[in-house]
Nucleic acid binder design. Structure first.
Lengths: 219, 219
DNA sequence: AGTTCCATGTCGCGG
DNA sequence: CCGCGACGTGGAACT
């Protein structure tokens, strides 16, 4: 990794045009070649950047970075206050835990938290337009397609609508109704779901982990 | 801005749990307090971070960063290879040019470039599922809902379809037809639009700026 | 390579 | 402050 702190102007010419006036900034070049220009504030996102793969040409006081799509990033340097470079080796990478899949797993284990009497038939039930998160049967023996999201927004309702369209053509399942499940369902998504006769439920992730815990299995 | 290159492990506990094993990384603390841990690769996104506002506690070889939501980021340091800090001053900020809003503004001023005889009724016309970019009236007095995108893709057609669904229930407007406008409309979006009897038009941004320029207002 | 969908998305605007 | 949608979204999984 190479790090500079320098006065510079920056111009990006690609999907849009952007210009940064002269100021002191941090310029970071990673081992994979990606370039990022950071101001001293404004979250982790750089003001400007160019991802790998790209080609960097160093001229006299100016860098021109070009990517295969023909986008360019031009850095024109004033005073360079500081510069260093170092080898950091390979990174062992990030271990994550607790995203949407986990929520789906928990709900698959305890479908009744979504609706009393609900029983799981299959997870990731395939349709021509992608797999339905959970396919269930309700207390009356009817089929229910469940779409699980961490945050329930309009896209999710659209997705579920597409699944239902196909599932309802399968005479062994039809009629299939939809159930939209998320930690939070946004108002516009509620409106759209209700308008399409799709049910929606909010579930609490922490509570669900509690219900799922070995403790309660004792009872 | 404060910069360290150090061996460290990192743990994030918040919306999810994430762990980084010991390795050499760049730790950046900006003037607004936000913290980012970068590996030597993998685009501009840091492996782990904590945005401002937050509270940083430095213990012996360990930093604990907490934000108001109760999320924590814990950095445990091994060897520190390098450390520096510097004042970079206020950043004058980014100037952008060419985004969707500008395109919408230009089209609102000259609706006839989308279709001869088209007249603007309102920008950002509200519906229960979000505002329609432009609501217009055509040469025959019919209502036209216009969705403007920089790049015309399938989700834009979906969006317009949802608007039309609701607008057509308003008897003062119905029937309302759709018009999908973008600098470039992708083949799949064209197909879907045509399938739903939604019109699509490609407009040239530079040309539009020309039409809109004071120069031509002289004629 | 193209498409779909998630993300600790982030960011900015309007109510 | 919340709601909502755009983003140079980026990135991963899958076709």
């Amino acid at each position: 990794m190479r790090i500079l702190v320098a006065d510079c102007t920056v111009d990006y010419d690609g999907r849009l045009n952007a210009h940064l006036p002269m100021a002191t900034r941090l310029v970071m070049v990673k081992a994979d070649g990606c370039v990022a220009i950071h101001a001293d504030g404004g979250a982790y996102k750089p003001l400007n950047w160019m991802n790998a793969p790209n080609h960097l040409v160093e001229e006299d006081g100016r860098w021109i970075v070009t990517n295969p799509k023909g986008e360019t990033l031009t850095i024109t340097f004033g005073e360079v206050h500081f510069e260093t470079a170092m080898d950091m080796g390979e990174d062992p990478g990030l271990q994550k835990d607790g995203v949407e899949l986990e929520l789906q797993r928990l709900l698959a284990e305890t479908p009744e938290v979504m609706e009393p009497g609900l029983v799981l038939i299959r997870r990731e039930f395939p349709t021509p337009v992608g797999p339905v998160d959970l396919l269930c049967r309700d207390a009356d023996g009817g089929s229910v397609a469940v779409e699980v999201k961490r945050r329930g927004e309009i896209d999710g309702v659209e997705q579920l609508t597409r699944y239902l369209e196909f599932l309802n053509r399968d005479e062994r399942l039809a009629p299939v109704r939809g159930l939209f499940v998320a930690q939070m369902v946004k108002p516009q998504a509620r409106t759209l779901a209700e308008d399409r006769n799709i049910g929606w439920v909010e579930v609490d992730y922490d509570e669900l982990r509690g219900v799922d815990s070995p403790m309660l299995k004792l009872f």
